[in-house]
Design a protein around this nucleic acid. Structure first.
Lengths: 219, 219
DNA sequence: TAGATTGTTAATCGATTAACAATC
DNA sequence: TAGATTGTTAATCGATTAACAATC
């Protein structure tokens, strides 16, 4: 089994988007698609599609293109969507509860197994049938349940410390919504969702657009 | 006023992170910092910091480094955080309400002016003092209020159509949380937050890690 | 002045695109 | 077989890093 080849981050970033488009094609009962047709749909070059997919082996066939169902399934496997990933949410505020209610994740194998918070007021309240527990129960819970992913939705002043606790109790993957860069050991996977940074990028582009409009008016 | 030079997306993407670190330094009353010290803090190269900042002009001083407060302010201006950006939320589900409750945005000038939904059950309910309105009121509302940004938190089957309505009524920037690529005219700014894609990237890295562990055990 | 550190040019690295031979 | 389209190599483009002269 010679896997070895390191796939670039840029490719991984595009993979879920391919998966989404292939899922749509599948729903429309499209059987096969060429890199050219897909490129027009997705607004990327056909060359990039072929290069990207070839990182993982020859999924297509000359003169035919790619079989939609096969490609969809294969990309799903690459993304690890063919197995169940049990998750917990740590931080049952608005965002944590919103994510708990997001049932689409379940469909892809991301199974919510517990919700935790530090605030005693929330203890016992149920979100989508799952009771909110106190952090004190966390170590015991993680011992008794195989959990792969922790969703961290605490405010940033509590998130760093909580990440340490999670890691000490064996968590290997954190989906981090707190506005800090977690300081974690090399074998722990962190995926950040920094909403405020996303909003600032929007703001930059908006301001840039406004600056350009102003310039045009002054010219 | 010769602005002209196009800043690369990669630089813009890093800018909010610089802003965050400078804000933290400011809170710690740090007066100045060299690209070298900042590089160690942020785990990027000093060379990249200097290159990035120089896109916008000479913010530093030889032999001294960068003045934290000045740099923080300047990057804030570049990001458009020195002016108020009125926003509306379209889609008052869990995520929409979570974002409405997120008061940190307000601090940076992102001011929530209205919340809209298509579901009559939600009509009149208040979130952080703002009443949820029906979409039918949207055109009138946008005529009477200067709104820059629409936060789109509807499910994907409704998001496309709603984006069209927003654009028809003059919205020029959409922060899109729906899992679709909006089809918008060139002068409309779209910033996507595709949570499911982020979770899939986490899943890929986790699966990859597990595959590597398996290999090690078999060797 | 000597030391520190930027701004900036040049070198390197990586990612994207183009081209085309292989092959279904 | 002829046509279509992939897989893959080569060329281009862009982004990152290294180096150093300019200058505070």
């Amino acid at each position: 089994m010679v896997e070895a080849k390191q796939i670039s981050k840029a490719v991984i970033k595009r993979l879920p988007r391919y998966y989404r488009y292939l899922g749509e094609l599948l729903e429309e009962n499209v059987e096969r698609i060429s890199s050219n047709d897909l490129s027009r749909k997705m607004h990327v070059t056909a060359s990039q599609i072929r290069q990207d997919l070839n990182n993982f082996g020859g999924f297509g066939q000359q003169g035919y293109g790619y079989n939609v169902k096969y490609l969809y399934t294969e990309i799903g496997k690459i993304l690890g969507l063919d197995t169940v990933h049990p998750m917990i949410i740590v931080g049952a505020g608005n965002l944590g509860q919103a994510l708990a209610n997001y049932s689409d994740f379940e469909k892809r194998g991301f199974k919510l197994a517990g919700i935790f918070d530090v605030n005693p007021v929330l203890e016992g309240i149920s979100v989508r049938g799952i009771e909110i527990r106190m952090i004190s129960e966390l170590p015991e819970f993680l011992k008794n349940n195989h959990i792969e992913i922790a969703i961290l939705t605490l405010p940033k002043n509590k998130a760093g410390e909580m990440a340490d606790i999670l890691i000490r109790n064996g968590i290997k993957a954190i989906w981090n919504f707190a506005h800090i860069d977690l300081d974690t050991p090399g074998d722990v996977i962190v995926e950040n969702v920094h909403l405020s940074e996303s909003l600032m990028r929007l703001s930059y582009n908006l301001s840039q657009y406004q600056r350009e409009q102003d310039e045009k008016n002054n010219a």
